[in-house]
């Protein structure tokens, strides 16, 4: 898998999804949660219903994450999940025939500790297609972005509702793979479905934000943070090219003894909601 170009792989996944779905589906799951073996089984089980995968490398201080993902990363760490273990899980997924594009999400300190250049190389060799690093804004990302580009991998930039037009222009110029739009100001985490006037207001804010970015962007736009249910996925899917669901998947997994089956069922329900 190491010879493929991650950026092209990601592009094709969005194109393929657009034929049957309103948006591509990208579940997030924490590598090593609750332990490395179970996480491998969960990810393998959801892959058939996923267009892309965002897989999280655990960090002790995940400051962009809410309680659900915080707890999952803490348990993964307690059960021996290191960066090397995470890369090995990705390698095993590829060996088992999972071809879904994989975004490796992780905070910057463990990347620095692993060695930035080595992280990019080893991730590429394991079968990763792109990097998501929430605490590495464009101002600080240059070096890693260049290393990723050299390896043919995408470096995923974020934009938030607070991003100015200048910041949007900068990110859309540099973007590879897709742009990760944060749906709201806040941390990750499932949120209750809104209804009535409130729901309409949120939806129209999001539509305006997506439109601001879309005007400049040449890559797909995926929206994440707070998308909890098939209904929410469907409504965001009408506006965006991709929908990212994380905490809600972890909640679904937590509620079942058969974690891979529960995960697959939940992700399948999200996929159905996106079918056109």
């Amino acid at each position: 898998m190491s010879l493929k170009n991650g950026r092209i792989h990601i592009q094709r996944a969005f194109q393929k999804a657009s034929k049957t779905q309103s948006a591509a589906l990208m579940p997030y799951f924490t590598l090593g949660y609750p332990d490395p073996e179970t996480s491998l089984a969960v990810i393998e089980a959801i892959a058939p219903y996923s267009d892309l995968l965002e897989l999280g490398v655990p960090f002790s201080d995940p400051l962009a994450d809410g309680p659900t993902i915080q707890r999952s990363t803490q348990i993964a760490l307690e059960n021996g999940t290191t960066t090397a273990v995470c890369l090995d899980i990705v390698r095993q997924l590829r060996e088992r025939g999972v071809e879904t594009p994989i975004m490796l999400m992780g905070y910057y300190n463990p990347v620095l500790a692993y060695g930035q250049a080595k992280y990019v190389q080893d991730a590429a060799a394991a079968g990763v297609d792109g990097f998501i690093i929430p605490d590495l804004p464009p101002e600080e990302a240059g070096e890693l972005e260049a290393q990723a580009a050299q390896a043919g991998l995408a470096f995923i930039h974020f934009l938030a509702p607070t991003s100015s037009l200048d910041r949007i222009a900068n990110v859309t110029n540099r973007a590879s793979g897709f742009i990760y739009l944060v749906s709201l100001t806040g941390v990750t985490g499932a949120r209750p479905t809104l209804s009535g006037a409130e729901a309409t207001a949120v939806q129209s804010d999001l539509a305006a934000f997506i439109a601001r970015v879309r005007e400049k962007a040449a890559v797909p736009l995926a929206v994440g943070f707070g998308i909890s249910s098939p209904e929410q996925a469907a409504s965001v899917g009408k506006l965006a090219d991709g929908v990212i669901v994380g905490s809600a998947l972890i909640n679904a997994v937590n509620q079942s003894g058969d974690k891979p089956a529960a995960a697959a069922q939940f992700v399948q329900s999200l996929q159905r909601a996106l079918l056109q």
Binding site: P134, D135, E140, H157, A160, T162, S163, S164, R167, V182
Partner: peptide, 12 residues
């Protein structure tokens, strides 16, 4: 030093 924070905070 530097600014290693999520995008949402950069405008702030």
């Amino acid at each position: 030093g530097g600014q290693f924070v999520p995008e949402t905070l950069m405008p702030a």
